[in-house]
Amino acid sequence: MDDRAAGSWTDAAFGAHLAKLLEASRVRVVGSRRLTGGAIQHNDRLDVEVDGGPWAGTRAIVVRSDAASRVAASRTRAQEFALLRAASAGGVRVPPPIAFDAGDVDRAPFMLMGFVAGEASGHRLTKQAGDHAGLLRTIGANLARLHAVPLAQPSLAFLGAPADDPTRELIASYRESVTTWRARTDDARPVIEWTLRWLEAHLPAPAPPVLVHRDYRVGNLLVDGGELAATLDWEFAGVGDPREDLGWFAAPCWRFARPDREAGGLGELDDLLDGYNAAAGTRYAARDLAYWQVLGQLRWAVVALQQALRFLDGGERSLELALTGRLLPALEWRLLAMTGDTFG
């Protein structure tokens, strides 16, 4: 792991290495600071002076590298960089991809991207006054462009062939995680089982598989001046049903300060879907997302189990991990309301 302090990016040797990556004659790092967020990755902003090459000038870039704790499902930095480049080429709003470095004995792999200004905090964004309908339409259209990124390109070969029914596979993987939890803790979590049975009984016919972000939500979207600036955190991207991303965005667990606003705590689902449908040529309505909102809420409950297990079983003394485990009853409470009083 390259868990270095942000300040050590400024040494001359790293500047020389950056010069190679940026195809420059010389790079001087004049400032650095660690950006907030990123329990799985570190994001360090570097202010650089670049002489020569395509990135010449004074600019801010971001170094994204692995943090001390990783989750098994997350993509490597090389894969994340390939995803960022494919998304950028497809017109998705992302930080400009600059370069990937495979690392060496002293340094873990990292990727470089352009710094994009904006606010990502879910709590702050959902507390902002005003009408976010336009922002939601843009977020929807941006997601449609993401789903239109061609899968059949060599740089994305690591995604593998689409499953016959990716959602059925997802549910099976969640069941496996819950089985692991029960075996390690003797904690039964009957509401999770109730929800898994509901999801299996109501599984919709699959839509044609697309590139899915799998963490497209408020908190991972940079917003600047009321406009969507960039889509962040591509480490969970894969191939799946497009409605999975829409349901995750609209799941109750991602509404922050405004649980009453179904579209990410920002506003109405209709605005999100207006933007999505216009760009994707689909005709999804809010009622079409109900299943996928349950799936999203259940997924977050499963992640909470995994995080809690890292604390209980893996010896990671993290208050954040411990508290994530305590989110479960409230998530389950909501799941019982969302599924109704029968699962069949």
Partner: peptide, 30 residues
């Protein structure tokens, strides 16, 4: 909770009355 899990796991998909009773118990416990 373990007893509730056993009942959820074995409850037939067509038994609406049993599911409603289970749901009420899950709500109370949660």
């Amino acid at each position: 909770d373990a007893a509730l899990l056993a009942r959820v796991s074995s409850c037939p998909a067509h038994d609406v009355a049993a599911q409603r009773a289970l749901h009420a118990e899950l709500v109370a416990a949660t």
